[in-house]
Nucleic acid binder design. Sequence first.
DNA 1: GTTATGTTTTTTGTATATAATATACGGTAA
DNA 2: TTACCGTATATTATATACAAAAAACATAAC
Lengths: 225, 225
Amino acid sequence: MVKVPKLKLDSYQPLRDVIFETLRKAIISGDIKPGERLMEVSLAEQMGVSRTPVREAIRRLEAEGLVTMVPRKGTHVSELSSKDIIDVLEVRGALDKLATSLAAKRVQPQQIRALESIHKQFISCVEKGNMEGAIRKDIEFHDAIYAASGNSRLIGVLSSLKEHVYRFRVIYLRDLNIAEHVEQEHQQILEALREGNAERAAELSENHIRNQMDAIVEALNQKKL
Amino acid sequence: MVKVPKLKLDSYQPLRDVIFETLRKAIISGDIKPGERLMEVSLAEQMGVSRTPVREAIRRLEAEGLVTMVPRKGTHVSELSSKDIIDVLEVRGALDKLATSLAAKRVQPQQIRALESIHKQFISCVEKGNMEGAIRKDIEFHDAIYAASGNSRLIGVLSSLKEHVYRFRVIYLRDLNIAEHVEQEHQQILEALREGNAERAAELSENHIRNQMDAIVEALNQKKL
DNA sequence: GTTATGTTTTTTGTATATAATATACGGTAA
DNA sequence: TTACCGTATATTATATACAAAAAACATAAC
C-alpha cells in the first residue's frame, strides 16, 4: 500500500505542485516502488486534500515518465528495466557532451569559480567517506555545467533525464562506488572549460558518461538482472 | 480571442486527450498565437465540455512547453524567440546525430526498405512542387530513423522537440525552401545506414541539422527579427 | 488631472457530486 | 470442475459548485 506524508502547507504554492513534489520524491527515493498503483482517493485522503489536485499532480508525473496511466484503469509507477536505463544514459551522454561543449564556449568566470568550489567540496566529501554528500556534489557539478551551457531547453531535458538516472541508482545500486575515477575526470573537464577548449571538453564528458554507463552495466551483470 | 472547433466524439478516447490534441494542433499550426491566453471557461464552453478535462489538457501542454502557466493568473501560449529555436535545434542536432548513429548499428532490412520508400515519395513530391507533401515526407524520414534507433526514450524526447521546430516553421518561415540539399543529404544518410557505417551516418546527420539551422538563421536575419 | 483605495468582476484553485467503465466475485449451466 | 454470465463494487472520468485570488473599474481625495 502506498504511503505518503500529510502535506505541510507553509509557503503558498498550489496544492498540485506540493503534491507533485511529494509524489516525485517518493518515487525517486524508492518509497513508492515500481508497479505500485497510485489511487486518487486514497492518496487524497492520506494527504487531506481532494482528488482534483492529486489528479493534476499525477498528470505531471506521467509527463515526466515516472508513472504510466491506463485510461479508466488507473496509474502505476513505471517499471525501470536495464534497457530503460541504458536508453536514458545514451541520451544523457549525447546531451551532456553537448552541454559541456557549449559551456566551454560560453562559461563565465564566476561560473568557473562556482564549479571549482563544488569540486573542492566533492573531494572533501570523498575523503571523509561521505558518499551521500559526494553524490549530491556530483549532481551539483553537472548541473552547474548545464547552467553554463546557456541553453534552457537543454537544461530542461537533462533535468528530466537526471531523475530517471537517480531513481535507477536508488533502486538497484545503493552501494555504487561513484568516486572511482570521477574526481580525476571532473578535474580534467574543469580544466578544459577553463581553457575554453570545447572539443576536449566534449570528448572528456562523453568519456565520463560512458564510464558511468559501463559501471552501471557491470554492476547490473554482477547482480545478473 | 482564441477559437477552437467543437469536438467530435467519434471513437472512444478520454476527453482530455481529444482536447489536448485539438489545442496542440491549434498551437502548432499557429491558429492560436504566441502570447494568447487560454481561458478554461471559454474553451470549455466552445467545446461543449466541462472545465475539468480542459484543465488536464492544459497541464499536458505545459509539460510539452507549448504553454506557460502562472499560478492564479492563467495560461498563455509560450512565445518562441529565435533564441528558443536555436536552443531546440542545438539539442535536436545532438540527438539526431545519436539516433542516426544508433540506427546504423541496429536498423532492420525492412526498416531500410521503408526509408527508401519514404525517400522516393519525398523526391516525387519535390518534383511536383508539392512542398507541403515534401515537408511531411521529410518528417516521416526522420521519424523512421528515430524508430530504427531502438531507443524509446530518445524517440520520446525527439518527438517533443519536433513540435517546437514545426511550430517555429509555421510561425516564421511559411515559405522556407526545404528541398535545397535535403534530397541529396537524405540519400547519403540512407547509404550510410545501409552500410551500417555509424560514424559516417552520425557525421552526415550532424551536418544535415546544422544546415537546417543555418538556413533558419539566415531566413531570420533576412526578416531581421 | 492624478493617485489611491474600495468594490465588482473575472478567473483560477479546490472540493464534491454524478456518470461511466473496469474488475472481482458468485452463481448457474454444461 | 469449468466456463460463462450477471451483478456488485471499486475506481476513474466528467461535471458542477464553491472559495480565493487577481484584475479591472470606478470613485473620491488631493
